[in-house]
Amino acid sequence: SKICLVCGDEASGCHYGVVTCGSCKVFFKRAVEGQHNYLCAGRNDCIIDKIRRKNCPACRLQKCLQAGMNLGARKS
């Protein structure tokens, strides 16, 4: 099975251009559409994995963007 390129959980498919799990898919959509201005309490290098993905939305969003997630991406 495929793994989420953001948190490493089991992926549910290709979302916004990137193979991700459902949790990261929903997080990314809400983060971008809600125009959240997340700030990292650390050094913008928090570990984002299945267990810690909820700890720092700033670093999670950064990881989504680095993976290439794009709200305008067509479903493939």
Rank of each mutant, 00 (worst) to 15 (best):
D49M: 03
K63Y: 05
R74A: 14
R52I: 15
T20W: 02
S23D: 14
P57K: 13
C14P: 08
K63Q: 05
N55D: 14
N37H: 10
K25M: 12
K63H: 06
R52T: 10
P57R: 06
N70I: 12
C64Q: 03
T20L: 04
K29A: 14
A41Q: 08
D9C: 05
F27W: 03
V32C: 06
C59Y: 00
C40Y: 01
L5Q: 15
Q66I: 11
A67V: 09
K75L: 09
Y16F: 09
I47V: 12
G13E: 10
N55F: 07
H15C: 04
A58M: 05
R74Y: 11
S76R: 06
N44M: 08
G42W: 05
L39Y: 09
K54D: 11
C14S: 11
G42Q: 14
K2I: 10
K54Y: 11
D49S: 10
V26P: 02
K29L: 08
Y38D: 10
C46T: 00
A58F: 07
E10D: 12
F27K: 00
D49K: 04
C14G: 08
C7T: 00
L39Q: 13
M69N: 02
G68K: 03
K2H: 06
K2W: 03
K2D: 09
H36F: 11
R43S: 13
R52W: 09
D9I: 04
H36Q: 13
V26T: 09
R53V: 14
F27L: 01
H15W: 14
Q35V: 08
H15A: 09
L61C: 01
Q62H: 13
K75V: 15
M69F: 03
G13Q: 15
K29Q: 13
I51E: 10
D9K: 03
G17E: 13
A11S: 10
L61I: 04
R30P: 15
N55I: 13
G17Y: 05
C46P: 00
C7F: 00
D45Y: 04
G34T: 09
G42V: 13
N37S: 10
C59D: 02
C46F: 01
K25T: 06
G42D: 15
K63G: 06
Q35E: 15
S23K: 13
I48L: 08
Y16Q: 08
A31G: 13
A11C: 05
K2S: 04
G17V: 03
R52Y: 03
Q66S: 14
I47R: 14
V6I: 13
A41I: 05
G8W: 03
K63R: 07
A11H: 05
Y38G: 04
D45S: 07
Q35A: 09
G8A: 15
C64L: 02
A58T: 03
Q62E: 09
I48K: 07
Q62L: 14
G34R: 14
D9L: 03
C46K: 01
V32K: 13
V32A: 14
L5R: 07
Q66Y: 07
H36Y: 10
A11T: 09
C14M: 14
L61N: 02
G22T: 06
V19Y: 03
K54A: 10
G42T: 06
S12F: 04
Q62C: 13
R53M: 04
G8D: 07
R74S: 13
G68W: 02
D45R: 11
E33P: 05
C21W: 00
